[in-house]
Every structure is written in C-alpha cells, then in structure tokens.
Computed example of a mutant assay.
Amino acid sequence: MDQPVSKSLEIIIPAFRMHTQMFDNILAGVETKDVLKRIEGRTNHIVWMAGNLVNCRYWLAGILGIAETDPNSSFFENARALDEKLDYPSLDVLKKEWHTISPKLYKRLLSISEEELHEPYAFGMKVEFVTENKLNMVGMATDRVGYLFGQLGLMRRILGYEGVRYDINEKLNY
C-alpha cells in the first residue's frame, strides 16, 4: 500500500481508497427511475447526495492546492440545499467526475507534508476543540463522505435495492 509523506494521514489513506471503492458500490445497480426519488418529500435524492460527494472531493482538492474545480459546483457549493427546480447532472456524469478528481486528490494526499497539513485554514465554524487547519479539513471531508454514504445506503434499502456490497475493484489504485 502507498505510504503518505505525512504520518498524520496514515489512517486517512486506506479510508480514502475504501471510499473511492464504496462510491461505485453504493451506486451500483441503481436505476435511472430512482435517482431523483425522495422519501415523503423530505430526503435528498441519490443524485444530490452523489453530487455532494463529488463536490466534497473537489473542495478538499482545492484546499490542498489542486487548481481544478468541480464543473457542477453551482448545484452543490456552499452547502446548497437540494432544489427540485434544478436540472441536476446525471449519475453517469457524477461518476465520471468522481473518478476524475479522486486519483489527483489521492496523489496529493500521499505527497503533502506534515507542515502544510498544519497550516491554518479558516473554515468559519469556530468550534473551540477543532483547530482550523488543512489536516482537520481532511478529517471533516472524510466524515462528510461517511455521512453521505450512510444516507445513500439507507436510500438503497428504502428503494428496494440490496445492501451495499464491499466488493473491491483491484484496478482502482486511488
């Protein structure tokens, strides 16, 4: 397994790679007829959640110095809520974007120094016990992914799909 330059990211690298795998697994077999469904008009739909996952990776990439931006950011940036009036990108487009930014972000996570991770990064939450730095942004992004995966897993079951599989695609090395 790849080893990061920063010891602080040793636990993040396996999680990042597993999340890359799980994105595909969690969306596997979901039919187009179900991607915009909401439960009792109260939940986010699958496309919105997948788009937020992609946007989260682009967001973290930007924090860590990758100049690329999410081409669909207008739908998801700044914690924008689901808007049923919008014509969201397709799940296929979002899957493509996931696999466009993920290898670049993975490479960056492997190469970033401990010193750079501890550089200040203000994110405005003003939580006394959370130091506002790049390292904690990596942690918050990882947490966000786990949160959205939980929602997507529940949506799969509610919509009648089998639970999420933990199959591994050996070709995904990021």
Rank of each mutant, 00 (worst) to 15 (best):
V35H: 02
L9H: 12
K134V: 04
S102R: 04
E119G: 05
F75K: 02
V35K: 01
Y106G: 09
I39L: 09
L135M: 11
G153V: 03
R157P: 05
L110C: 12
A81Q: 05
F129K: 14
D83L: 02
T43V: 00
V54R: 06
L36I: 09
L91V: 10
K37C: 10
L82Q: 12
G51F: 01
A61V: 11
K126F: 00
V47S: 00
G29A: 06
E77A: 14
C56D: 14
I12D: 09
D143Y: 14
I66G: 08
Y166A: 14
A50D: 07
L53G: 00
L154K: 06
M18F: 13
Q3W: 10
R38E: 09
E162L: 00
E115S: 03
V5T: 15
G51T: 02
M18R: 14
E114T: 11
I46W: 00
K171P: 02
F123M: 06
Y58Q: 08
V138D: 12
D24A: 08
W98V: 00
H45T: 01
M140V: 11
P103S: 08
K126P: 00
R57N: 14
A122E: 06
L154G: 09
T142C: 04
L135K: 11
E114N: 14
Y88V: 05
T69P: 02
G153W: 03
D34N: 13
V54F: 05
L105S: 04
L27T: 15
L91M: 11
G51W: 04
L9E: 11
G65T: 06
V127Y: 06
E170N: 10
H19I: 02
E119L: 12
K126L: 01
R38N: 08
L159F: 13
L117M: 07
N72W: 13
G150I: 05
I26T: 15
K126Y: 02
T32D: 13
N25R: 12
L148H: 15
G62P: 07
S102W: 04
R42H: 11
E77S: 13
R17T: 11
D83F: 02
M155N: 08
E68P: 06
G146N: 12
E31M: 01
V164Q: 08
K171E: 14
K107S: 14
G150Y: 02
M125Y: 02
S113I: 04
K134I: 04
D34W: 00
D87K: 15
P120S: 10
G160L: 05
D70P: 06
L86P: 02
L60T: 07
G163Q: 03
A28V: 01
Q21G: 06
P4I: 04
Q151V: 05
R17D: 06
E115G: 01
T100C: 00
N52Q: 14
F23V: 10
E10D: 11
Y121M: 05
D92N: 10
H99D: 03
M137K: 08
L9P: 13
M18W: 07
K33S: 15
L27W: 01
